[in-house]
Design a binder for these strands. Structure first.
Length: 363
DNA sequence: AGCCTTTGACCAGCG
DNA sequence: TCGCTGGTCAAAGGC
């Protein structure tokens, strides 16, 4: 199978690069039918009229490959309908989100930019990981909520939709809701079938968007800059950041997300994983052994620095060149524990902290 | 006030 | 031509 498309993106600061090799010979369909059922996350079924293809996603260190799994011939025409598993679409969405974050992060200070890129890359890996099944449920519920909450208008596919009709079809079966893209002159429509239990039974997309996705500033907020916590939490749910990955190893480096002074989630990555990211992302000015995530709080004082569920003892302080705020060093107050952290205000935004965790709590 | 969803009516395609 | 089915319209009401 020859590469049909090669999309390589490199951000302007050389901090991260990721390439996608679209190996499958896919012609964009007029309609995409999205089934809510995906038994195996690594296998997707592509139905184009009567032909069936199986494709699998493989996530390598620096590339995502979609490779064909059987001998079906290439598609030589635009199919009328395109049936894929929801996970396929979600993986596509995850990659597009990742791309958008990289673009949006360009306007951030170098340090924040690198942190964002690093975290986004990690999230993308998670999103494409075969073990992450719960994302599907989350996305589904978002679609259900499309008609309930204005804030969910921009659904998980990144576009804004307006419902223009609903009808019960196939007597006794699921009601079908009709949406059109709210962007002026955009011809795209989607039809959503909702099962009895409120889950999405089927989503059918028609047409191609003739405009870019709406601004992802909200995603930016969700990732780092949100101060009310709600969208941040959605983000955390979206990427299933529950720290329960089976590949966690020791020693670990932790990155905590704190909003309004409360820890929302903590995730751990292995040093080897982190090195992979570091290799891809280049040297970070933040740390060489740690993953750092800025913490944003609405009204913070230094007492919040320790409000992460552990008791910390301050053991040092250092004035950093170019930053009016000193960096404080803490060690876990449990004498046997080797966990440490460094906390520093962001010079550009004194309400924000960058906290770097080292080591792991053993208690 | 403006945007949105709801819902019955209308229309087109098809057998 | 008729009836069925599915997609769209648009008025009304809600948020």
């Amino acid at each position: 199978m020859q590469n049909n498309n090669n999309i390589a993106t490199t951000n302007p600061k050389n901090a991260s690069s990721i390439s996608i090799a679209l190996v499958a010979n896919v012609i964009r369909p007029k309609a995409i039918r999205l089934k809510a059922v995906a038994n195996h996350p690594t296998v997707v079924a592509l139905k184009c009229n009567t032909s069936v293809q199986e494709a699998s996603f493989r996530m390598d260190k620096e590339s995502i490959e979609i490779s064909e799994g059987n001998s079906e011939p290439s598609i030589l025409h635009r199919p009328i309908a395109h049936v894929v598993s929801s996970l396929t679409i979600l993986q596509k969405f995850a990659y597009e989100e990742h791309q958008q974050i990289l673009v949006d992060a360009r306007s951030l200070p170098q340090e924040l930019y690198q942190v964002n890129c690093k975290q986004s890359t990690l999230n993308l890996h998670r999103s494409l990981s075969p073990s992450s099944n719960t994302k599907q449920r989350h996305y589904s519920s978002n679609y259900v909520n499309d008609s309930k909450k204005t804030e969910d208008k921009k659904s998980s596919d990144g576009y804004k939709w307006r419902k223009y009709g609903q009808k019960r079809v196939k007597k006794g079966e699921f009601p079908r809701a009709y949406y059109r893209c709210v962007h002026p002159a955009c011809p795209v429509k989607k039809t959503v079938e909702i099962s009895k239990d409120g889950e999405i039974a089927e989503i059918i997309y028609r047409g191609d968007h003739n405009h870019p996705k709406p601004s992802s500033k909200s995603r930016d907020k969700a990732f780092n800059l949100d101060r009310n916590g709600s969208t941040h939490e959605k983000w955390m749910q979206k990427f299933n950041l529950d720290g329960n990955d089976s590949h966690i190893d020791i020693p670990t480096v932790s990155a905590s997300f704190i909003t309004d002074g409360r820890e929302k989630a903590t995730e751990s990555v292995t040093i080897s994983q982190k090195r992979k990211n570091d290799d891809k992302l280049g040297d970070s000015t933040v740390a060489t052994k740690s993953t750092a995530v800025p913490k944003l709080m609405s009204s913070i004082d230094d007492s919040h620095e320790a409000n992460d569920g552990y008791s910390w003892q301050k053991y040092g302080k250092k004035v950093i060149k170019g930053n009016p705020y000193p960096r404080n060093y803490y060690r876990c107050s449990d004498g046997k524990c080797s966990a440490r952290k460094r906390v520093q205000r962001v010079s550009d935004d004194p309400r924000s902290f960058i906290t770097i965790y080292e080591g792991k709590h053993h208690h």
